[in-house]
Simulated assay, not measured.
Amino acid sequence: MRDAGLERAIDAAGGVAELARKIGIAQPSVSNWNRVPAQRVIAVEGATGVSRKVLRPDLYSEPAAPDDAVDPTDAARAQEYALLATLLSSAPSAALLEQIAQLHGDATPLGRAHATLAEAASVAAVSEVEREYFDLFVGLGRGELLPYASYYLTGFLHERPLSRLRDDLAALGIERVESNFEPEDHAATLCEIMAGLAVARFPVPTEAQRTFFEKHVSRWMGRLFADMEKAENAKFYRSVGTLGRNFLEIESEAFTFVN
């Protein structure tokens, strides 16, 4: 029997087949779910607009640290990472595009990136963004961009950077779900991990956040976002690239200042 969160996601997507199509997996896989698997929460949220807290309240309802213990800056950082993780994991739903269109900007580079993304979301058609996501990250054989650390650092997939990442995740006690066949060095996964580290969702030392960022994020992900800005098939995702690049520049400066 399906739980309430999965039922809402299926309704929002327009049926089991449509949900499977939106997140890029086979229909029988979704048909066999009783609830949304942990490794699919971000993709389903992005595809349907149903909050992760509704999809998996056992995983997302309560933060690891009390609300008053999370610094507002860290909470805002986590939101940026979570938004990037969602947009990198799957094409956004109509509901998510509507939410993004409400973002407000300011005179800072990051604020201008927010305003540009909001404008792009306000005029984007869901079907066009889905096609754009497919062309950029999936493709027939491969997409225009390969959002993996191994590829950006070595030119090949499943190389030493992925092995090192797996070692560090094991040391931090962050486990990979066995049914998740996407390599852990995907940009969406790394952004989701950084979101969790920012609000102390994972029980790891404070220093681990900076170390993880410098070893597994800052060395390559800025180049991915820069490539996204000039990608031939990018339209809506050009503004995602601008946001990601500006945000990571701020993160790098902040961690350097802490050092």
Score class of each variant (00 low, 15 high):
L117S: 00
G155Q: 09
F202I: 01
Q209V: 13
M221A: 10
G141S: 10
L145E: 04
A107V: 05
A43V: 00
P147W: 03
Y152F: 13
H216E: 04
I193V: 14
L110R: 09
L59F: 02
Q79A: 15
S179M: 11
E62M: 12
H186E: 06
I100A: 03
F181R: 11
G141Q: 13
V54M: 08
A26V: 12
L55I: 07
M221S: 08
A43K: 00
D185A: 03
P147E: 08
A20G: 13
G5L: 02
L140R: 13
C191A: 14
V44R: 01
A171M: 09
D58R: 07
E214L: 13
L55M: 04
F255C: 09
D3E: 06
Q209M: 14
A47I: 14
S163D: 10
E229N: 02
R40M: 14
E184T: 07
A75V: 00
S150W: 00
I25M: 13
S93H: 12
V240S: 02
E253Y: 04
A107W: 08
G222H: 10
S218F: 07
A113Q: 01
V16L: 11
N246G: 07
A121S: 10
M228R: 01
V30P: 09
A120V: 12
H186T: 05
A76C: 06
K215Q: 14
V50F: 12
A12H: 05
L59H: 11
L117D: 01
T154M: 07
P205T: 13
P183T: 12
V204Q: 02
G46M: 03
F225M: 11
R201W: 11
E207F: 10
T116Q: 09
P183D: 10
R77P: 03
F225S: 03
L110Q: 06
L110N: 02
D168G: 06
L87S: 08
V177F: 07
E214F: 13
T154V: 06
R238L: 08
L59R: 12
Y152H: 07
R35G: 15
K53A: 08
N34R: 13
L140K: 14
V54G: 01
L84S: 02
I25V: 15
L59W: 13
A115I: 04
F257I: 09
D58V: 01
A78Q: 03
P37S: 12
P205L: 07
D106W: 03
P161C: 10
V126E: 15
R56Q: 06
V54L: 09
V129P: 03
E62P: 00
E182P: 01
M1L: 12
Q99A: 10
V30R: 04
R56E: 01
T48W: 03
L6V: 02
Q209H: 14
I250Y: 08
